[in-house]
Structures are given as structure tokens and as C-alpha cells.
Amino acid sequence: MDRKVYFKGRALPFLLLLPQLAVTAVFFLWPAAQAVWQSTLQQDAFGLSTSFVGLENFAEVVADPNWRGAAWNTAVFATSVAVLALGVALFLAVQADKAIRGQRFYRTMLIWPYAVAPAIAAVLWLFLFHPNIGLIGRALNAAGVMWNYQLNGNQAMLLVVIASAWKEVSYNFIFFLAGLQSIPKSVLEAAAIDGARPLRRFWTVVFPLLSPTSFFLLVVNLVYAFFDTFGVIHALTKGGPGKATETLIYKVYVDGVDNLNLGSSAAQSVILMLLVIILTVIQFRFVERQVHY
């Protein structure tokens, strides 16, 4: 597989890289640097009085019980979303991998939710689960279940987990399906000849061969749950009731945009940035190097 293409000279490759580098610099590096700088400042909203406070903002953030609460929420939320989204997607992919009628239609339908914007997805779920106007919400209340996610923190968490996981199932589904289809038939047939039943074949042959895909998806799902679920939470619960569904990324928004506390918000986003960096490192070390596709 060692067929590399070499450019003559250096100008052309640099020139070709330039647009991407420029985009990265303007949209990622510059704002990131500003966030780091802002995180060391105490500043009023209008930027009229500024003072350098070093790491004080970070100390305050970490000592803040509300931030710790949000961190805990994020852990619960991200784990639940990842487990649910991966589990459902794997199940669906295994089913879709079988020879069934209308396979294409079935697959297309499953991929669809990924194209739905988070806010719209949230509204769809709201219309299902709202205690007063939601189809399922009303049915639950009529059936005697006290369903009101506006007041019950656990129900609110359940709802945002379901809504977020639903959106990510499609993405996982595509990857799992591709993973399943790349498993050589001969291996499965050999296992079958050896007398392994379907369930056993799945756990001893298919699942291990899927592990690189699974691990990759796990990291992607965690990153998604950490950073891409703002829209769902904002549209469904706004972090409430109480602070039951306030995740770290949502708190960054609330403190920065609603409360205009820029220093604290910046410090929080820098912490999140470190988290992404760690996840990326894990991704590269364990997935891209050690596991062979």
C-alpha cells in the first residue's frame, strides 16, 4: 500500500493547504486564543473595566457547586446518550444487515434523523412528551403516570437523553452497518460450520471484529453528547427544572450569553477545550494506531 505521491517543490503544497489553514486559524485558533485570554480577566459586559485575575476564574469555576453539578449531569447525560445511541444503532444495524425485503427503504429511513436540526428534533420530542400538549405526555398522565418533565428532574433528563440519542442513532447505524458488511462472510460461515449459534457467533466473532468501529463511535458519541446537544437542551428544558439538565456546554452559554459573565464562561469553555483535546488524544492513540481496520 506504499504508493505515495510527491510534490515537486514546496510552494504548491503550501498553497493548496492555505485555505484550510486560514479557515482553521480564523475560526478555530483565533477564537480559542481569545477564550484563553478572556478566561484570565474579570470584565463587565461592555468591556469598559477590565482587570487581569490570572487563574481566579478557574478556581471559582471548579469550586462552584453548580459547575460540579453540571459536570455530574454531563457525565450522566453523555454516558446515557452514548450507551443508548450505540445500543440501538447496533441492534438496528444487525437487523438491517440481514437479507430482508425493502432493505434500502429501511436503511434510508434510519439515516434520516441525522439530517434533522437539533432544535427541530427537540420540538418534535416536545410535541410528543409535553405534559399538556404532547401526545405521549397526555397519554401518560391520563394513564396515571405523573409525567411532567418541567418539574421532575429525572424525567427531564430522560427526555433530553432520548431526544439526543435518537439523533445520533443514524450516524452510528451507518458506521455499524459498514462495519458489519466488511466482516468476511467466510469467517462467519466457518463459525457456523463449527456449530456456533447466531447469538454466539455475534458475541465471539462479529462483536470483536466490530470493536474498532465501536470504539471510534464511542468517542464520537461522547463528543457529540458533550458539545453538540446544546440545541436539544435549549429547546426542551433550558437546563431545568432546577439545574437538572444543565450540562457543561449549556452552562457556558448561560453564564456567557444570559448572565454576561464572560470571564467565568471563558474559563469553563477552556476547561471544555482541554477535555476535547484529551478525547482527541485518546482517539489517536488507541483507535488510529493500535486497531486495524
Binding site: 475560526f27 478555530f28 483565533w30 477564537p31 480559542a32 481569545q34 477564550a35 478572556q38 463528543v223 458533550f226 458539545f227 453538540d228 446544546f230 456546554i249 457556558v252 452559554y253 456567557g256 450569553v257 464572560l262 464562561s265 471563558a266 469553555s269 477552556v270 471544555l272 477545550m273 476535547v276 483535546i277
Partner: peptide
Amino acid sequence: AAALAVLALAG
């Protein structure tokens, strides 16, 4: 994702 984390501020 990293951008999202800092975008709130970039805004």
C-alpha cells in the same frame, strides 16, 4: 467540537 466550545465566546 473544539470550536463549539469556544464559539460561545467568539460570538
